[in-house]
Amino acid sequence: MFAASFVYLFFAVCAWRAGFVSLNGTAAWLDTSAEVGIVALAVGLLMIAGEFDLSIGSVIGATSILFAIGTNHYQMNPWIMLAMCFALGAVTGLVNGAITVKTRLPSFIVTLATNYALIGAALGFSRLLTNTTSSSIQTTPGVELLFGSQWGQANVAVLWWLALTVVATIVLWRTPFGNWVYATGGNESAARGAGVPTGFVKIVLFIVTSLTATLLGVIQAVEFHSGNAANGQGYVFEAPIVAVIGGVLLGGGYGSPLGVFFGSIIFGVITVGIFYAGWNTDWLMLFLGALLLAAVLANSYFRRLALSEG
């Protein structure tokens, strides 16, 4: 939170003249924060439970193109296509989770593989069916309202982001399932010994993660009025970076949705701040890299501090 205010003030000063602190500037960084925040939140929960998901990128791309081709090329009802997108997301999460839990392979590799497989399938099928890998979409007012509402520059993603953060916070802190998530990542064999269904916990979180990626894919498709199978790959590493900046331990067992929320704000402020400051956006990577390193060091320091015998 401190880091978030600091980064904000930094860009508020540097990009003041360009209107970073204006209504539009604020909406711009909120949008960016919200879009990464929606997936980073779920990726963060999964990391707390000790697993990774690199397949979010292709879920975003695949669901956006599925929605576009279905509504535009085949004139399907947008609500039906919406259901199919979320079904695709759920199945991807289920596959990721089932393979990871059953084989005990590192989810890093499993989801890297599904990321490639799914983007390959999305590109291949869309070219096969429509001869292109991007397509415009058709929607209904209801779909527009849920996934495409805008107030000035601000996008409905911000509301989804806020709502999901609140839900995730309640689930993690105030339900037995939340307790199981921390335990699964903190010491899996001990958790299983205490009767926690750790496989179930992981599979649920993989599905939730893919569903948030689907949500983002649909939001982006509606926002840009087009779907693109190659969309979303940027989030593959941005989401875990944001989670770590937000205080989630790389090894699992610790972190909070509120932390990831502030991590997303930092990400959005930097991304948009650099743009507003008029600097070359190439610097963004440098900023993120340095921040990630600092966050990892701080996290491991706080971890040791928290565990020192008091």
Binding site: N179, Y182, A183, G186, N187, A190, G193, A194, V196, R303
Partner: peptide
């Protein structure tokens, strides 16, 4: 290994599961 989860609180460990 006692089955304790170091980064969780005493209460949460106690009632885990």
């Amino acid at each position: 290994d006692v089955g304790a989860i170091p980064l969780m609180s005493v209460t949460r460990n106690f009632f885990l599961g």
